[in-house]
Amino acid sequence: MNAQTKQLPKPPGKLKHALTFVIVLFLLWGSAVQTEASFGRLISGIPNMWDLLKEMFPPNWAYFDNIVNPMLDTIRMAIAGTTIGAIFAIPLSILAANNMVRSPWVYQIARFILNLLRTIPDLLLAAIFVAIFGLGLIPGILALAVFSVGLIAKLTYESLETIDRGPLEAMTSVGASKLQWIAFGVVPQILPHFISYVLYTFEINVRAAAVLGLVGAGGIGLYYEKTLGFLEYDKTNSIILLTLAVVLAIDYFSTKLREKLL
């Protein structure tokens, strides 16, 4: 070995980082140009924002009487949608986990369905269901259910794949049928995770349900559209405050509950 090969290694070049930076900058600039966004417009828009804020305050407290029921509807939609989604997520997550089914065909197809479900935006789903079932809570519930299946099943099957194999082996060795194998080996291990994911999805669904009314799928969202359309910004403000309070409360309790579970 000669002296040259014994040299200490040199740090890798910085070219890659520099190039990444240039590309990100280019994309940012390109996006701004294409969407005609600029700081100038942002700054010139500030007085408008200020006017809007002034009109929003004080909120119209009396309007709360009108929106409590739609708000409850929104929560009901979220509960119904999450529950339906959770029920359908159970078989799908088992089919998508590669330690639950042997055949790659089965779990790859199940995963493809899950990915498909999650790529459709919930507003689009709601709009489609409104077109099918007409205005009301049903299309909202269905849209949330479809979205929930995708999310809950995805999170659950990923957790399923990390469960302890030992108890599963033990269940095989005692002569358990597939159903018993799942009930005694899998369910106790995955249940806390599953409940946690359902609660998490419920949090997301409450927020999503609040805007679904914009496309006619019921709940508080309809009132956003109404009050904005009539330029009644003080009422809009009431809706925003109520939504904020409800979402914060549900997030708080759901997070507390999930901490207890795991």
Partner: peptide, 25 residues
């Protein structure tokens, strides 16, 4: 019956339920 190096119990379940798992057959 089989006894394993790593016990292979369901850790979150009660002792009794783990023993009852032997009865499923």
């Amino acid at each position: 019956g089989m006894v394993f190096q790593s016990f292979n119990l369901v850790k979150r379940s009660s002792v009794l339920r783990n023993v009852l798992a032997g009865r499923v057959g």
